[in-house]
Design a protein around this nucleic acid. Sequence first.
DNA 1: CATGAATGAGTATTCATTCAT
DNA 2: CATGAATGAATACTCATTCAT
Lengths: 209, 209, 209, 209
Amino acid sequence: MASPRKIAAQVKDADLVTERRAHIAKAAARVFRERGFHNATIRDVAVEAGLSQGSLYNYVRSKDDILYLVHQDLTSGYAREVEAAIAGLTEPRARLRAALTAFVRAMRERHGDIALIYQETHALEPDSKRAVLAQTQSFIDFFARLIEEARGAGMRLPGAGPLAADITTFLPVMLALRRWRLRDLAPGEAAEAEVVGFLLRGLGADDEA
Amino acid sequence: MASPRKIAAQVKDADLVTERRAHIAKAAARVFRERGFHNATIRDVAVEAGLSQGSLYNYVRSKDDILYLVHQDLTSGYAREVEAAIAGLTEPRARLRAALTAFVRAMRERHGDIALIYQETHALEPDSKRAVLAQTQSFIDFFARLIEEARGAGMRLPGAGPLAADITTFLPVMLALRRWRLRDLAPGEAAEAEVVGFLLRGLGADDEA
Amino acid sequence: MASPRKIAAQVKDADLVTERRAHIAKAAARVFRERGFHNATIRDVAVEAGLSQGSLYNYVRSKDDILYLVHQDLTSGYAREVEAAIAGLTEPRARLRAALTAFVRAMRERHGDIALIYQETHALEPDSKRAVLAQTQSFIDFFARLIEEARGAGMRLPGAGPLAADITTFLPVMLALRRWRLRDLAPGEAAEAEVVGFLLRGLGADDEA
Amino acid sequence: MASPRKIAAQVKDADLVTERRAHIAKAAARVFRERGFHNATIRDVAVEAGLSQGSLYNYVRSKDDILYLVHQDLTSGYAREVEAAIAGLTEPRARLRAALTAFVRAMRERHGDIALIYQETHALEPDSKRAVLAQTQSFIDFFARLIEEARGAGMRLPGAGPLAADITTFLPVMLALRRWRLRDLAPGEAAEAEVVGFLLRGLGADDEA
DNA sequence: CATGAATGAGTATTCATTCAT
DNA sequence: CATGAATGAATACTCATTCAT
């Protein structure tokens, strides 16, 4: 989905590039979560990835590339989880519920990554930012389709207006961005359940007791 | 409310300090919105504020102080708007609705400032961050009280769980953080209405047609 | 003695100028001893002197002026002590011994000031430095005269060569500059006695048991 | 001897680090002698060393590190000279005399470096200062041993009290710190001889004509 | 004479990026 | 492909000095 921005590489071996970039993305995410993007240095990332600074630059062109890599990795990470959660399901209403549940869970479990995304997306260069937002857009659209299909299958969702998919994909983010509060307020699973319930009620799903 | 962190000043005239700091906060907010906190230089801020760099440092001790000033200014800004919106109202249910509406509107109208807050809070030094989060906490608690009072006045809010105030104060932020999407998706007022409606339904308020 | 450099003042009242400058010199010496000349700020000095920065500049033209003032004050301070010690004495040999003893004592008691002088003289502007060194020169010459007169009175000082006065006025400085060592090595008075004895032996004074 | 403070480096090649640091120390000493430590800029040092500022910081962590490097270099410099002067000698009395002569000569010949040390040691950060003073302490102890051994070999030194080694290692410093006077007062070698003679007399060495 | 706010020139330090080996 | 030394541009912060009130 969307059109991922291409990253030029020095190295020819395509498989090696893919593998190393995945590795770099994981390492960089750890470093960025720890110190923040701006305070983290390329050296930090290289050390964490077990590469020399020079080698790093064989797989990546700039610090912005690294941040972009991290974004791609994290975004596609939770998107894949949601997709996996509905992989075996065919009934549209069940698919919507399962997707919602999986998404909410991902937001809570990957709170560090999600917070990172929300804090540092604005630090991306214009091109990278555009690509990342396009990916997010795709994910929202994916949810919009799930909602449409559930409705097509007879689910009553009178509350689902034009922003339904946006709301659905935004409210759960609270579990990551308000973690400083929620941690002490409600056990994780209860918080997840409350958010799911709130969303379904907001959409007008009447069969949610 | 909360305990604002104190900022030391070189200048003794307290009124002058207050006035200039307000001025600096406004100027800095403009600069930070434009370039982001990390890319903005102190010189940028000074120029925008119409001060010399040296003078700036007579009212502020560090770049962090400036970011903190901006946070304080923006946070108390929308908080004041919400308070003003319910100032004349005594009926608890009306107060809740008015507060919600005012808050949602503030989130949309001040989208730039809100986005700034959500992007740069993590850049604050620990002490400043603590102070800012305490202020946010106060605001959430304020909403929690509004909900409690509405309920006490007989409003049926079966959907309001432990996270009710959090959800209520978080979802509207979407109007700021997803502006890149919503701008082209729905006219502002419609978006506001949809969010308010969604929240009330989520809370279980049944008298919302 | 020597030609003290003149310092221009804004203020006309000559007595006030003299009085305030003495006050400033004392305050500045305290500050410089504490933080060192370069790390101390004019503000520090003003605060310590109980003046505003603006007022300070009515009595002094620059930071260098202050350092010069301090030097003058400290140098003439110990010089006066030595002169006082021989004021009532007329016998040349007794005068030399008394001067020596007083000087050695001053070096130990005023160790902080002496260290300050030796550390910061090089920070003076050329003109100020010249004036300060001229003052020191006068003091050495004064000791040279004492030695000459003692010899004229029949004292045998076969060891007193061209550098006699220099050595006599330099070695005691050790009590200030090596304080970090001597403090734990010998009680103050013993150290003084040892230095005096060493000097007399070095000069060849044979009647020093 | 003593425990030299460790300096962290960005560069891994240990030999390169050693070599470059020696080079930097020499260059910095020239710059500091010329302008003084506080007035000299890192840029001055880098230019004098033929390095870019960035490279300089690959071998050194701060301006204080550079000053420390200079101190180490200069201190071990004259210490080595003194050791070399007695390297071939075994007779304790001859060793003491040779050491003294060599030290006095070093003080006069390296007057600029010695003055630098005495002027700027106080500018070192606490840790660096401690390390430097420990090194000086070692040197004084070394002289104390020479004196003890000479005495053990039968040399009569009735004037050598607890401060003997301190005095011996301090008085010659005069040739550096009073250079502004002595330059015009006595030819270099004569001054050296007079100081050596004075010291031996002060120690009570009777076989010094 | 006193005050203290304003100023701007000055500087140590960091770090993304390059490139010779 | 890997390495790591070299680089220089960029920037927050300080402080002596001035001057309007």
